[in-house]
Design a protein around this nucleic acid. Sequence first.
DNA 1: CCGCTGCCTTGATGATCGTCAAGCAGCGAC
DNA 2: GTCGCTGCTTGACGATCATCAAGGCAGCGG
Lengths: 236, 236
Amino acid sequence: MTGKMNATCFGCQVRHTTEWCALNDEELALLDGVKVPKTYEAGTTLFHQGDDCAGIYCISSGLVGVRRLDAAGNSTLVRLCGPGETIGYRSFLRKSSHRSTAEVMMPSTVCFIRRATVRTLLEQNPNLGLRFLDHTLKDADDFEDRHFENVTFTVRSRLLSLLMVLYERFGHLNENGEPVMELPISRQDIAALIGASPETISRSIGAVQDEGLAVFKGRKVQFHSLEALVQQLPGA
Amino acid sequence: MTGKMNATCFGCQVRHTTEWCALNDEELALLDGVKVPKTYEAGTTLFHQGDDCAGIYCISSGLVGVRRLDAAGNSTLVRLCGPGETIGYRSFLRKSSHRSTAEVMMPSTVCFIRRATVRTLLEQNPNLGLRFLDHTLKDADDFEDRHFENVTFTVRSRLLSLLMVLYERFGHLNENGEPVMELPISRQDIAALIGASPETISRSIGAVQDEGLAVFKGRKVQFHSLEALVQQLPGA
DNA sequence: CCGCTGCCTTGATGATCGTCAAGCAGCGAC
DNA sequence: GTCGCTGCTTGACGATCATCAAGGCAGCGG
């Protein structure tokens, strides 16, 4: 079942943040005609690691997690993608199979665009290619940053850093004007994201709580002061 | 001083592995006329973190290290670039300042190409843009892999992995048919690359040696058997 | 030849973090 | 309700790793 509001690309709320903002009306009509929008419930997988890349996915709402399997077969959350983000595009551009698994983390509506369609659009509109280039450049820089963080930060710092990133997307002020957030992912996934064991994360959260920076109740977090938290991050 | 052999792009040994393989003879002549080739000795820095991106650098021989400064001001080696690789191109494409410092690690000859020249070539030849896209895609995937490695591998595994990567570029068989290699970087830089302290690296090297996998003497390494070493890497 | 300096090693110690195991809270199924 | 499941927490322990400090060893200038 698909929500009425996002049924067409023209009405899509997040289009201007995606690669597709490079398209003109005619091209957008083409895209609109062949895209496959769908709402998924949490737990669904869009594609599996090793699958052929059949096309790319454009998230219109919700949250999708990208996972990778290690040598032992354990699935590790590598990153999160939200509304306005495109996934599977790198495998598409490299004409290779998927290097990771995409799993829906929250109820989400996602549009699928077949490989052939994207190719046609890319040939018609060179600006679309530049958008993909921009996206790839940003991804490369992001991964470089995260690699640097993992090497130079402690688990505690990485946790605080992740909390701030999540807050930017999922946080808000409650009725008392206090910054609060509902964590979109489990502690196990938090652990995988920052490269630590779930137990260590649990203890780290406890420590952050003891210092009065935030209060955790299940997946609900209430921060005492965002400024105090930012100050604790490496780099002043 | 510039070596005679690599004085022109047409004679450049590594051109077919660079982005410039997309250029036709006419475009190559343009590039050849304005490029600035130079040989640097070890220790020189090509550009500093935070500098404006004046153009891109194409390594024709030698080795260049990419460093980043952490909050405390320590410089940590992030990656190595060898002949046929282009550096500074992501800052150029994003029209931003350099996110890292490039330091010559071995005597190297490097060609500098001014920003305006690259722009002109990009406008003339769309294939060149595709080459840059490919390079960026590869970089993004590489960083994703390394992030995954850092999170899931131990220091020992990361060391062995790095040794194999270095061997592919700097290793060879000696007169007795044994695989040997001269390490291009210091232990401190090895430590930074894999995210560990120099002391831990020293001890890790000792352990690898005790197990008979390799013998280290200063920067000289002699492997007992590459197959045995590969088997020790995670993922069978 | 001496002393210096940078780089590497080694040892001792403690902090951090992973692992194993048990207990607990929430939650849906029945 | 209560059973069982899953995810989270806690404790105890050991392995790993960083830190501090001392010493060795080459290269180099005096």
